[in-house]
């Protein structure tokens, strides 16, 4: 079942077409990867889908509803959450508080209830805490729950961001380079985690540079170059597409291979 529909999405930055006319769909229970050389517009595309940028043209539909250009907090309410390429962790907060923040939508009540610590607010806080601890366990950070997030390693912070995004209870999850800066062991862990998340019915949208990772876990691959979509398909066919090889290796290399 397709959950997320992207149609002709584009944006200009000062006359430069950063992303132009990109269309694809992401299905529940599948990993859809967006790949492409540096500067291809992958993160810009993610920013438009997640409401951080307002698209200049095109349309984003979530479960049939047009959600183009609506605010990220509204998208979270509709079940779309994301992680960031350049970490956006709440550095001064504890690991647990970071994960708990992901439960904001299910935990929040009235500000009065919070200030007076009313039973209902305390109950919601307890539920959120249980949920956050479960997620931390899942990304193997439960031992570090009370640590200040700023003290964690890069790979751990990447996992913490995933835990936080999962707190929203997303139907669509956007992961922007979750394995960047991670060692082989950590990459494999993230690999397993992403596969599990997709298997649980989430539509996972992935930007990743680690091609081995992408080819291993993706069901569907979208290739961008210079803001244009140059190929789309299953990992096998995309990796053999001459356009894609050209974009990654340059024309000469292709000629050499052909010759």
């Amino acid at each position: 079942m397709t959950l997320l529909h992207i149609e002709g999405l584009g944006i200009n930055f000062g006359g430069l077409k950063a992303v132009d006319n990109v269309s694809f769909a992401a299905a529940a229970g599948q990993v859809t990867s967006v790949i492409g050389p540096n500067g291809a517009g992958k993160t810009t595309l993610f920013n438009m889908i997640s409401g951080v940028y307002t698209p200049g043209s095109g349309r984003v539909a979530l479960d049939g509803d047009n959600v183009t250009g609506i605010h990220p907090s509204q998208l979270a309410r509709r079940g779309l959450s994301r992680t960031f390429q350049n970490l956006q962790i709440f550095q001064d907060m504890s690991v647990l508080d970071n994960a708990l923040a992901g439960f904001h939508l299910s935990e929040r009540g009235s500000v009065w209830g919070d200030m007076l610590s009313l039973p209902a607010a305390r109950r919601r806080a307890r539920d959120a805490r249980d949920g956050a601890m479960k997620l931390l366990k899942r990304v193997r950070l439960d031992d570090l729950a009370s640590e200040v997030a700023g003290n964690l390693s890069y790979g751990q912070l990447k996992r913490l961001e995933i835990a936080r995004a999962l707190g929203v209870g997303p139907r669509v999850l956007l992961l922007d380079e979750p394995a960047a800066g991670c060692n082989a062991v950590e990459t494999e862990e993230i690999d397993t985690l992403i596969a599990e998340l997709a298997a649980s019915g989430i539509a996972v949208l992935l930007v990743e540079h680690d091609m081995k990772l992408v080819m291993r876990i993706s069901h569907h691959v979208v290739v961008l170059d210079h803001g244009q979509m140059i190929a789309e398909g299953d990992p096998e066919s995309v990796s053999q597409n001459p356009e894609v090889i050209k974009a990654y290796l340059g024309t000469e290399a292709v000629d050499n291979v052909a010759g």
């Binding site: 962790i89 709440f90 550095q91 923040a101 992901g102 707190g167």
Partner: peptide, 13 residues
């Protein structure tokens, strides 16, 4: 959270 990162805060609702 919004003190830490407004963008991240809004993406969690």
């Amino acid at each position: 959270a919004l003190h830490g990162s407004e963008v991240a805060a809004s993406t969690i609702g």
